[in-house]
Simulated assay, not measured.
Amino acid sequence: MGKRDDAIRAKTPILASVTIPDRDEAPMVYGDQPVRKQWAESVLYAQGVPINPHLPMIESEAQITLRTPREIADRLRAVSIIAARGSGLPLADARRFIDERGIDPHLTPAERAFLDTPEPTMRDQIQFSWRHEAAWVLLWALRHVEGQLGAPRETCDVDAMTDIIINVPDLGRDGVRSANDILNEADLVYRYHWAIRQAGIDGQAPPADLDPGVVLERHYALNWLIGYGGNADWDDVTTDT
C-alpha cells in the first residue's frame, strides 16, 4: 500500500503480507539487524503491541544510503505546504509560500496535480492533510525534534512544526540523524504497521491505542529516508509489511 485512502481514515487497515525468501536464497545478515529487531520487539512487548516473530529484519546500516540534509529539507517544505493545503490553507496562500521559498521544483507529480486542482475532493484533502505526520518524521530526521518519535498514538504538533519551517532558513543546518537512529524507527514502525493491519484482518481495533494514520505516514517517510524500494521517488514509496 503506497497511498492513504478512506479506509485508512476510517481506521480500517489493509491486508498484511510477509515476503519469505526462497529456500535456496541465503541473504547476508549484518550484526546490527538482529539486534535492531530484538530491540524493536522489546519496545512493542512493553507497550502491549502484538509481535510477529516471523517478520523479516529490515535493512542494515551497511545496505542503505540516507537522503541528504538538502534532499530532506526540500522534501519537508514541499510536504508541509501540500499538507497545509489539504488542511484548508487557501490556494493563493499556498502558491505564495511556494514561490517565496522556491519549492515548486521539489513538488512531486501527485503534489502538483493536487495543487493544480482549485476544488479538490474531500478524499484528496484528507489524504494530503495526513502528510503532516510524514513531515514530522522529516523534521525529526533533521534534528529539530528531540529524542525518539515515540509511540504513534497521537498526531504531531502542526503549529510547532510550521513555526520551525517558516522561521528556520536552513532546515538542514544540523545534518541528519544517524543511520542507526533512523533504522531503529523504521524497524519499529514496520512492526507497528503489521500489528495494525493484522488487527484489521482479525476484525479488531488497533492495539495499544495506535493511530493507523500516524503509523502509515511515519512508515512512508522513514522508508523514503532509507531509500526503501530501490531509492523510490516520494510518490512511489511503499509500506510493505
Rank of each mutant, 00 (worst) to 15 (best):
I103L: 00
G102R: 05
L107W: 02
S129D: 02
R131N: 11
E100I: 06
A110K: 07
R96C: 13
T108G: 02
A110R: 06
F97C: 12
T121Y: 05
H132M: 13
A134L: 06
E100Q: 15
I103V: 03
I98V: 10
R95I: 07
R101D: 11
D99T: 13
I126D: 15
Q125F: 09
P105L: 01
P90H: 07
A92C: 10
I126E: 15
A92E: 12
R96F: 14
Q127Y: 13
F97V: 15
A110M: 06
A134K: 01
R123T: 12
R131I: 09
P109A: 00
D99R: 09
P90W: 06
D124T: 09
G102L: 04
D116E: 13
L91F: 07
T108H: 03
D104W: 12
W130C: 12
I103H: 03
E111F: 09
L91A: 10
Q125S: 11
H132A: 12
R131Q: 12
D116F: 01
P118D: 01
A135W: 01
E119Q: 12
E100V: 10
V137F: 06
L139W: 01
A135M: 04
H132F: 15
R101K: 12
L115K: 02
L138S: 04
L91G: 07
A94L: 03
D116Q: 08
R131W: 11
W140K: 02
D104Q: 13
V137P: 10
M122L: 14
R95C: 12
R95P: 14
E111W: 04
L89D: 01
I103N: 04
E111S: 08
T117S: 08
R123S: 14
W140R: 02
L138A: 09
L138G: 05
S129L: 08
P118L: 00
L91D: 14
A92G: 09
D116M: 03
H106W: 11
D104L: 06
D93Y: 14
F114S: 02
I126L: 15
P120Y: 01
D104G: 06
W136M: 08
R101L: 10
A134Y: 05
P120M: 01
H132E: 08
R112Q: 11
R112W: 07
D104E: 15
E100S: 13
I103C: 02
T108W: 03
W130N: 14
F114L: 02
F114I: 01
L89I: 04
E133P: 03
L115R: 02
F128E: 00
F128L: 08
R112C: 04
L89W: 11
A135L: 05
E111M: 06
P105G: 04
H106M: 10
D124L: 12
I98L: 03
T121N: 08
D104M: 08
I126R: 15
E111Q: 06
A92W: 09
Q127K: 15
W130E: 14
